[in-house]
């Protein structure tokens, strides 16, 4: 089924930051876009070749593929406001 939000979270192994980011992301999604999102977690330690495609530098990076425009949010997503702005849920 088509989701309104397609999100990819790039991590590198189960580091503290990755775990924090994922749990933060899930929390925000549940709060603001319940049922409208799909999260794909990509572990670059397993699939290093995928890093180039989305121009990943920093870990963890959240990439919002859909809806356009593509946005990247880097960090452990601890700042909820910034994440929501980045996901275009809140106006800038």
């Amino acid at each position: 089924m088509e989701q309104k939000y397609e999100l990819r979270l790039y991590v590198a192994g189960k580091t503290q930051k990755s775990v924090t980011a994922l749990s933060n992301l899930k929390k925000y999604c549940e709060e603001h876009m319940k049922g409208e999102y799909h999260i794909e977690v990509i572990d670059l330690l397993v699939h290093p070749q995928l890093a180039e495609g989305d121009q990943i530098l920093a870990i963890p990076t959240l990439v919002k593929k859909v809806p356009e425009p593509v946005r990247k949010i880097i960090g452990d997503l601890s700042n909820q406001e910034k994440v929501l702005v980045g996901l275009d849920i809140r106006p800038r």
């Binding site: 930051k17 530098l57 870990i59 880097i74 960090g75 994440v83």
Partner: peptide
């Protein structure tokens, strides 16, 4: 958008 801790592991 930057938020919180990150590194350049990528």
């Amino acid at each position: 958008e930057e938020t919180g801790e990150y590194d350049l592991e990528g």
